[in-house]
Write a protein that binds this DNA or RNA. Sequence first.
DNA 1: CATGAATGAGGTTTCATTCAT
DNA 2: AATGAATGAAACCTCATTCAT
Lengths: 204, 204, 204, 204
Amino acid sequence: MAVLLSRKERDRQLRRSDILKAAEHLFALKGYYKATIRDIAREAQYASGTVYLHFKDKEALYFALLEEKLKNLLSIVKGKIGQAKDARNKIKILVQESLVFFERNQDFFRIFISEDNELFSERKILKSSTGLQMEKYTTSLLKEAQEEGVVSRDFDVGQLTDVFSSLTKTIILKWLQKKDGKNDNLCDLSDTILRLFFNGASNK
Amino acid sequence: MAVLLSRKERDRQLRRSDILKAAEHLFALKGYYKATIRDIAREAQYASGTVYLHFKDKEALYFALLEEKLKNLLSIVKGKIGQAKDARNKIKILVQESLVFFERNQDFFRIFISEDNELFSERKILKSSTGLQMEKYTTSLLKEAQEEGVVSRDFDVGQLTDVFSSLTKTIILKWLQKKDGKNDNLCDLSDTILRLFFNGASNK
Amino acid sequence: MAVLLSRKERDRQLRRSDILKAAEHLFALKGYYKATIRDIAREAQYASGTVYLHFKDKEALYFALLEEKLKNLLSIVKGKIGQAKDARNKIKILVQESLVFFERNQDFFRIFISEDNELFSERKILKSSTGLQMEKYTTSLLKEAQEEGVVSRDFDVGQLTDVFSSLTKTIILKWLQKKDGKNDNLCDLSDTILRLFFNGASNK
Amino acid sequence: MAVLLSRKERDRQLRRSDILKAAEHLFALKGYYKATIRDIAREAQYASGTVYLHFKDKEALYFALLEEKLKNLLSIVKGKIGQAKDARNKIKILVQESLVFFERNQDFFRIFISEDNELFSERKILKSSTGLQMEKYTTSLLKEAQEEGVVSRDFDVGQLTDVFSSLTKTIILKWLQKKDGKNDNLCDLSDTILRLFFNGASNK
DNA sequence: CATGAATGAGGTTTCATTCAT
DNA sequence: AATGAATGAAACCTCATTCAT
């Protein structure tokens, strides 16, 4: 019985996952408003109604997607960082792992970056609780860096967090837009980001 | 006769302007999709149809708004920069004037920053020709800075332009989100931006 | 004073006529629904409002046009027929003059033929009183022809009238659709029409 | 399974048919432009959106209607004509069956006859491919009649086709307009049509 | 559970008509 | 009289969401 339930549950998760994958693709391709539930359901090979068995409404689907992926990224990052000792190295790992992750999840990046700036009332920056966690985690690393003196204490940590994040996103976005056939590795850009950031935020 | 015509034309521009102002407010408040033409018309105290006497359709209204404001900003910036001699100062002025402008045009900033990241197919980043001009202009200043040695030549200028813009936007956005009653001047943040950027992009 | 008034009146008629001409062109080109008052006014070089100084509404303009032209055709036909003696000749003249008229007024013909079949409630076949007169006149000629024995009395005259009219229109329409560069004269087709009709409606 | 599918499909066709019937009625009553999708949906007892599950847009609905009915008429006619031997009899059957059909489908006739004369750009006389087939079929019968000598070769077959069709339509239209309570059978008029046509188009 | 037809609110846009200038 | 900006009703169509099967 436990087995049966767990299989059932596993199946359920699979379907949910199918839908999330389709949503990721379509939201990235067309944006939140132009991507229809029908599009998404069809791409996932389900009927529209099925989507509603897993998500309350379109917005919930959207946020679940954000949540899921961010949780994934955060856990990867936290895992890898465990080993590092000083803040500089931790931040280095954060950047590198983010680049690796986004290179593999370009659709998600498109959604992520556009969500990013939605300060509009409706699609709120609820910043999916994991988004907030991510932010807090970054902030804590930057605080550490300030304490270790590798980043100046003159700056407001909140501000630094935003600058750091947007810097990373900007570089990724630029890479995504270029992507001439060359297909240079995104992760090669971690040095650029780190140099810009650490120099920028240094004690002078 | 000339007077009559010019009054007519002036009135026309006033009405157009009413609509643009309402659009600015509503696009900023609700975003492109949730802001309806009816909302905008009502806020401008006109009937829906009136909007279409001035703009072909919703998109045209949106882009006209972008264009109008950006042209304004660009001309201010270019005007003020005329006086400056070295690249560092020019860029300083660019930042300062942008901050002044966006402090006065916060609604527009909200639209601007969200447009910015729309890589989606439909509402294209055609970056309203003036948007492109603005970008080119910034790039030219950064090139100058590279030539003058105040910014490292290691970086790709395109990349630098993006970084510079997103840095500025990020700082503004952060300020906009905080804005606790204090109401600190946005323009006071120009030093933060410049320090982060010039240190970041320095030769080491 | 009389002169002054009459000049005023003449001007008024000229403007009315301008509008009717534009309406004729646009109704022919796009049909009643797709032709807008604005289109028509613009083509006539007036403002939309001016149209309403001459016609109560769009429908009134449409019917005035029908009326005007049909009155014209009817008076031409009646004038020419005065001379003829027997019904056959009268009908021959009717056909010939109609062809000449429609060759010169092809736009109007397009409108006329489409109106023709509108039995819909709204754009009623009020058949502009002149349309009715025209019909009665034709009927009277056909009655005469029946009395003179050149057309069989077996047929209902109303029916014959309709058949005669639609026959004429059909031939004209066909000519209009072909009109390969050749530009053959439409009036050359009168024999075809008359032959088809008189044979068709003969006593055997 | 086959049964299940076929029931679904059958239901679907029924709904489609409901809508077509309502459209037929309303287009006949008010004409293409004044009949609204809402009207049609309401008459068919569906919501507006439902119409769009079956037809891409208003025009598609209109043409589907035309197509459906014409296909029906054409197949009936072709079926009955199979038996006949000479052209005269074939044409007789064509007329008779058309009359029977239109007597039963008066709403459709109203649409058909009005469509007929739309030479306007938009609602094209693409004459729904079946419309063209119908025309070609008629033409072929008339050619046969010419070859058999029962219709004069002096006439252009295209012209004859048009004359024949409009003659038939005219007689039906007249009948439809009269229809005093008497309710005489429309099909009784086939002799009138045939006599008018064959005499008219005879060798003299 | 899954389906997908049905719903209907609501958006954009057009255009006949009015009316202040 | 002439203008043409303004109006606002009303049309078409989309799509998130529900619910009977």
